[in-house]
Nucleic acid binder design. Sequence first.
DNA 1: ATCCAGGCGTTAT
DNA 2: ATAACGCATGGA
Length: 216
Amino acid sequence: MEVYKSLLREYGPQGWWPVGGSYFPKDDSPFEIAAGAVLTQNTTWKNAEAALEGLRKGLLNPDALIEIEFSKLAGIIRSSGYYNQKALRLKEISLYFKKSVERGGTPDRSSLLRVRGIGPETADSILLYAFHIPVFVVDSYTRRIFNRLGMLTGNETYDTIQALFMNELPRDEILYNEYHALMVKHGKEICRKNPICDRCVLRRKTICSYTPSVVH
DNA sequence: ATCCAGGCGTTAT
DNA sequence: ATAACGCATGGA
């Protein structure tokens, strides 16, 4: 919670939610959010967004994505990278939504994880952003930041890290949403692969134990 | 030119 | 069980 407060004070609310965010705006349908979650896997949101834009003309629903020819879909989402894998994953998710979600259900985590192409982070992103269920999303930035803070060792599993956060923090959708967004911001701009520790609010508070492995 | 981005499934240890 | 590896485009 101390880290969260520092990041929030430094960067302010990121606006991923409730309204005005450019990532998963509130008025997007759950299916669109799920599609976006797949398209952005290991890829910048910019590239994913371009792919999403290509789908925006009538293709952002399960029926359309089930119908469309595979290679055509792959071509449309080309800009998101891994387009063959992601085309398959979009089709799998479409089947899942048509079967389980479209008639009223909120998905549960274990059923999401059975879908080909939905791993823990994508599942949790869908639960949090599309269905407003308070689950903490762990991503590579979370790992990197907390490794450098000395609060993780680097060999924890996804579920272990998630449990650490969720046991420590109140189960609050908005808090998890904002915290995740702030870590993306901090991870991208400051706690990068090559970090700019001089500008890091966490280091100034001497929480951070990161020391560059190669010092010139 | 080289490196990396809000991972995941498969295949090798 | 867990560590490597392939997947691929676009921008810095």
